[in-house]
Write a protein that binds this DNA or RNA. Structure first.
Lengths: 233, 233
DNA sequence: AGCGATGTGTGATCTCCATCACCAGTCTGC
DNA sequence: GCAGACTGGTGATGGAGATCACACATCGCT
């Protein structure tokens, strides 16, 4: 239950910015108007450039938020997990969606119409604040993303940062040095702005340097510090 | 902190352009609590990573908003002109400033303390909305920035995009195909994520191709379409 | 004048990574 | 079982641009 901003070291997991930290009355009001649906993998909730119809709130599952360049290449901005809203900035600003949202696994997602959100925000100051804070977080994580992707030359640095970031999400899990690898090399490349082949080679190199071990879809990072030492490079 | 009286910019002093979209009562309330100062060039209003003290609102002049990579390289996110607030996202989210703000020319800037902003936002829903919309815009522009910088390979494409963007800001001016060049090559490089030398070479190339002409600090773009044709490339 | 500081122009290298190419697993559905 | 799609490994090649290294303008300054 965290928005995680891709490829940066200090990943701020927004404390409890779920739906549930809203006053019950407000949460109920939202619940009344929201339409909750279960989607399979690969459904596009909204696409970059579309006029905003409303906001989506991830209840379960995971959504990939990406932008697309003129040449067709894709960059994954971040993976959005349960508890986080999607498309809020577009709705409040009235501009087009800034990115494309696509389910990355079967997901349960609530939808709240444009007009309903704005009306509720006007009624409930807490909701307006909640919205504003989420947008601020998205803004901050996007700024970090920019810094990490543009201001660090080497692809290995970016990959190391991504892995360390994944580790940070696991601190409370039973095995904090393991990461379940839910992305293909292609997608990882899209997260760090590199090609599939480069990711493959980097992983090979990391393994050779004993920075990571892989068994099936589980990555083990035995020495986090060593990985971090690649980052400041 | 010294206050300067500078003869530079009284030509365009849009007295209250700033809060024009706020109801007068709200604008007055802000005005009451804001502290307006004139700064010389090169003053850092706030730095990336600092705890937010409050928001700054540019009344006159121009402010450079940048982030800094671990290796010391700098990326200029955008230049903020009169009428725009700075640091709002950090204040409402309570996190650190996401970027560094530095005056790029002598500027008149209002400051509103953290607590005052939040109090006023609670009092005046319109202000809260204004704030939220500005953050949304910043978010959108940062997303565009990411796309333009990461998903377009060539540096020439990025430079062309930057120049076309500058042209767009001039549509209402008397000479819409001219741009006053207020940045050094180094700074332009920091806007498009390239080195100073590359910018210099690109300009030379553009001149050779008759895409731009330069006389002093004025750039003339005789054929905007030709420049745009570099972009989709 | 003469001096630094700062911005610019341009050659010569050098490096990282995108890209092309091809092969080998693995998983699907039929 | 097999065909086809998707994924992952890895070599070879090329190119865009960072970087280094100069030279040359401007400035403002004392």
């Amino acid at each position: 239950m965290a928005t995680y901003a891709v490829s940066n070291a200090q990943k701020l997991a927004p404390a409890d910015n779920t739906f549930c930290d809203l006053p019950p009355a407000v949460a109920d009001a939202v619940e009344q108007l929201a339409l909750t649906t279960t989607y399979p993998t690969g459904v596009v909730l909204f696409a970059e450039g579309q006029a905003p119809r409303g906001v989506f709130i991830v209840r379960r599952g995971r959504v990939k938020l990406s932008i697309c360049g003129s040449d067709g290449r894709t960059l994954i901005l971040r993976l959005v997990e349960a508890g986080c809203p999607l498309g809020v900035a577009a709705v409040v600003s009235g501009r087009q969606y800034e990115a494309t949202a696509e389910t990355q696994e079967p997901s349960e997602i609530s939808f709240l119409r444009h007009s309903d959100l704005l009306r509720l925000m006007r009624l409930h100051g807490e909701l307006a604040l909640w919205v504003t804070q989420h947008i601020s977080q998205d803004y901050a994580s996007t700024c970090r993303e920019i810094r990490d992707l543009i201001l660090s030359d080497s692809a290995s640095e970016k990959l190391a940062r991504l892995l360390v970031g994944w580790l940070d999400q696991n601190t409370k899990s039973k095995n904090p040095s393991q990461v379940k690898l839910a992305l293909t090399h292609e997608e990882i490349g899209q997260m760090i702005g590199s090609s599939r082949e480069t990711v493959s080679r980097l992983f090979a190199g990391f393994k050779k340097q004993r920075l990571i071990q892989q068994s099936g879809s589980t990555l083990v990072i035995p020495n986090r510090v060593a990985l971090e030492s690649l980052i400041t490079a």
